[in-house]
Measured scan of single mutants.
Amino acid sequence: HSHMSHTQVIELERKFSHQKYLSAPERAHLAKNLKLTETQVKIWFQNRRYKTKRKQLSSEL
Protein backbone atom coordinates (compact mmCIF):
# COMPACT_ATOMS: atom_id res chain seq x y z
CA HIS A 1 0.00 0.00 0.00
CA SER A 2 1.62 3.22 -1.10
CA HIS A 3 1.12 6.51 0.66
CA MET A 4 -0.08 9.51 -1.29
CA SER A 5 1.31 12.94 -0.64
CA HIS A 6 -0.86 15.81 0.53
CA THR A 7 -0.40 17.47 -2.86
CA GLN A 8 -1.55 14.39 -4.74
CA VAL A 9 -4.66 14.09 -2.58
CA ILE A 10 -5.49 17.77 -3.11
CA GLU A 11 -5.25 17.30 -6.88
CA LEU A 12 -7.39 14.15 -6.73
CA GLU A 13 -9.98 15.95 -4.60
CA ARG A 14 -10.05 18.86 -7.01
CA LYS A 15 -10.59 16.56 -9.97
CA PHE A 16 -13.25 14.64 -8.04
CA SER A 17 -15.18 17.82 -7.27
CA HIS A 18 -15.53 18.37 -11.03
CA GLN A 19 -16.22 14.81 -12.05
CA LYS A 20 -16.98 11.67 -10.08
CA TYR A 21 -16.08 9.28 -12.89
CA LEU A 22 -12.97 9.29 -15.06
CA SER A 23 -12.58 7.69 -18.46
CA ALA A 24 -9.52 5.50 -18.98
CA PRO A 25 -7.59 8.24 -20.88
CA GLU A 26 -8.44 10.83 -18.21
CA ARG A 27 -7.31 8.44 -15.50
CA ALA A 28 -4.06 7.72 -17.35
CA HIS A 29 -3.43 11.43 -17.80
CA LEU A 30 -4.13 12.25 -14.15
CA ALA A 31 -1.98 9.36 -12.94
CA LYS A 32 0.90 10.52 -15.11
CA ASN A 33 0.59 14.11 -13.88
CA LEU A 34 0.55 13.03 -10.24
CA LYS A 35 3.20 10.31 -10.67
CA LEU A 36 0.74 7.68 -9.49
CA THR A 37 -0.32 4.44 -11.11
CA GLU A 38 -3.66 4.28 -12.91
CA THR A 39 -4.71 1.64 -10.39
CA GLN A 40 -4.04 4.02 -7.50
CA VAL A 41 -6.14 6.69 -9.15
CA LYS A 42 -8.93 4.23 -9.96
CA ILE A 43 -9.06 2.88 -6.41
CA TRP A 44 -8.91 6.36 -4.89
CA PHE A 45 -11.91 7.42 -6.98
CA GLN A 46 -13.82 4.26 -6.08
CA ASN A 47 -13.18 4.81 -2.39
CA ARG A 48 -14.01 8.48 -2.65
CA ARG A 49 -17.34 7.75 -4.37
CA TYR A 50 -18.13 5.17 -1.72
CA LYS A 51 -17.37 7.62 1.09
CA THR A 52 -19.55 10.29 -0.52
CA LYS A 53 -22.40 7.83 -0.95
CA ARG A 54 -22.16 6.72 2.68
CA LYS A 55 -22.20 10.30 3.90
CA GLN A 56 -25.33 11.04 1.88
CA LEU A 57 -27.03 7.95 3.27
CA SER A 58 -26.25 8.85 6.88
CA SER A 59 -27.37 12.45 6.43
CA GLU A 60 -30.74 11.25 5.17
CA LEU A 61 -31.42 9.28 8.34
Rank of each mutant, 00 (worst) to 15 (best):
H1G: 09
H1Q: 11
H1L: 10
H1I: 08
S2H: 12
H3D: 10
H3P: 09
M4S: 01
M4L: 09
M4C: 10
M4P: 05
S5H: 04
S5A: 04
S5K: 02
S5F: 04
S5V: 03
H6P: 13
H6Q: 10
H6E: 08
Q8D: 03
Q8Y: 01
Q8H: 03
V9N: 05
V9M: 15
I10R: 12
I10C: 15
I10A: 10
I10N: 07
I10D: 08
I10W: 09
I10P: 01
E11F: 05
E11Y: 06
E11A: 13
L12H: 00
L12P: 02
E13I: 07
E13A: 04
E13C: 13
E13N: 05
E13W: 06
R14W: 06
K15V: 15
K15I: 15
K15T: 10
F16M: 02
F16Q: 02
F16H: 02
F16T: 02
F16P: 02
F16V: 02
S17C: 15
S17L: 11
S17P: 03
S17M: 13
S17E: 13
H18K: 13
H18V: 11
H18D: 09
Q19M: 07
K20Q: 13
K20D: 03
K20G: 05
Y21H: 06
Y21E: 01
Y21F: 08
L22Y: 01
L22E: 00
S23C: 05
S23T: 11
S23E: 04
S23I: 02
S23A: 05
A24S: 07
A24P: 10
P25I: 14
P25S: 15
E26N: 02
E26V: 04
R27K: 05
R27T: 12
R27Q: 07
A28Q: 10
A28I: 09
A28N: 05
H29G: 06
H29D: 11
H29T: 13
H29C: 13
L30S: 00
L30H: 00
L30R: 00
A31C: 03
A31P: 00
K32G: 05
K32V: 10
N33C: 15
N33A: 15
N33P: 00
L34A: 02
L34V: 03
L34C: 05
L34H: 01
L34K: 01
L34Y: 01
L34G: 01
K35G: 15
K35R: 13
L36K: 00
T37S: 09
T37I: 02
T37G: 01
E38W: 04
E38K: 04
E38R: 04
E38N: 06
T39G: 07
T39R: 13
Q40M: 04
Q40I: 05
Q40W: 03
Q40V: 05
Q40R: 02
Q40H: 02
V41K: 01
V41T: 01
V41C: 04
K42A: 10
K42C: 10
K42Q: 10
K42R: 15
I43S: 06
I43L: 09
I43V: 08
I43N: 09
W44T: 00
F45D: 00
F45G: 00
Q46F: 07
Q46E: 13
Q46H: 07
Q46W: 09
Q46M: 08
Q46K: 15
N47M: 14
N47Q: 13
R48H: 07
R49E: 03
R49A: 03
R49T: 01
Y50S: 14
Y50F: 10
Y50P: 04
Y50R: 15
K51Y: 11
K51M: 13
T52P: 13
T52S: 12
T52Q: 14
K53H: 07
K53P: 09
K53I: 10
R54T: 13
R54A: 08
K55R: 10
K55C: 15
Q56S: 15
Q56T: 06
L57N: 13
L57C: 13
L57H: 08
L57Y: 05
L57A: 13
L57V: 14
S58Y: 06
S58N: 14
S58Q: 12
S58E: 14
S58R: 07
S58L: 12
S59K: 12
S59V: 11
S59Y: 06
E60Y: 05
E60L: 15
E60G: 13
E60S: 10
L61E: 14
L61I: 13
L61W: 03
L61P: 08
L61T: 15
L61F: 06
